[in-house]
Amino acid sequence: MAAENPSVSGVAGRYATALFELARDDKSVDAVKADLDKFAAMLAGSPELNRLVRSPVFTAEEQGKALAAVLAKAGIGGITAKFLAVLTANRRLFAIHDVTRAYAALVAKFKGEATADVTVAEPLSDKNLDALKSALKTVTGKDVALNVNVDPAIIGGLVVKLGSRMVDSSLRTKLNSIKHAMKEAG
């Protein structure tokens, strides 16, 4: 399955594929995804946890003990906790971001969903998110999961990447186009 999808290649792809197959056999694909998403959110919110995950200074044993405590406190157990322990023991915990992304891609493919990366200047309301999902479903014929990134530098509008297609309706791009046209005209 990993070979069919270039976004799940390499070390992260192999780990994500193994985790996905375990979760599928255990009928816990969604629960594992929820646990991975929870762990990713914890990483995003904690510089200390990020340092633990990324720093080669900590031994696998130190990482394992700290990770076990963090997972227990967060209520993450089962397959996900065992998987993270294996990543830690194999000194691959630093790849968790890529593994999480690859696992999400495998889940989306399994469910017949498409995934779109959306960049916006400020967070979208639930109403706007639903409208965007609906519009993308009309275009693709599939349910679309959104990875939303907020980047104030685009000023306004949005940038949508869906597979090999990209639509850039950001204000920054439009202003750059006008600026470029004015340079050519002048």
Rank of each mutant, 00 (worst) to 15 (best):
I79F: 08
A102Y: 01
A69G: 14
A89V: 13
V139K: 15
R54E: 12
A68V: 00
L52T: 08
R165C: 05
V139H: 13
G112S: 04
A12Q: 00
A16V: 00
L19F: 02
A95L: 00
N147L: 09
T119N: 12
F39V: 03
V70N: 07
N5G: 04
G10R: 07
I155F: 07
L162I: 14
F110H: 15
K127M: 12
M1W: 06
T59C: 06
S164A: 15
K33A: 14
K137T: 13
H97C: 01
D37T: 12
D35V: 06
A114V: 07
P6K: 00
G163W: 05
K174G: 10
R51W: 05
A16L: 00
K109W: 10
V11D: 01
L171F: 11
N5H: 11
E4P: 07
P123N: 11
A69F: 02
L52M: 12
A153D: 09
K65V: 13
L146D: 12
A89S: 14
L84V: 04
A72F: 01
V57C: 04
R14L: 00
K179D: 14
A116S: 01
N176R: 14
G10Y: 07
P152V: 04
P6T: 03
A69D: 12
V32E: 00
D25F: 05
S7V: 09
S177Q: 13
T59W: 06
A18V: 02
V139N: 12
G10P: 10
L175S: 11
A85P: 08
A12W: 00
T88H: 06
Q63G: 10
V57E: 05
G157K: 10
K161Y: 06
F39P: 02
N147I: 07
L124K: 08
V159C: 11
I79E: 09
K38W: 04
V70M: 06
A60H: 02
A60T: 11
A135K: 14
R92K: 10
D168N: 13
V144S: 08
H97R: 07
A153F: 03
F110E: 15
V11Y: 01
A41W: 01
V107Y: 00
T80Q: 01
K183P: 05
K38H: 09
F20M: 00
D151S: 14
E62P: 04
V148P: 03
H180T: 15
K142A: 07
F110K: 14
V167A: 11
A66N: 09
R91T: 09
D37I: 03
R172W: 06
S7N: 04
K111G: 08
V29F: 02
Y103E: 01
M1E: 12
N5M: 08
L52H: 05
T115V: 15
A3T: 07
V167R: 04
T100E: 09
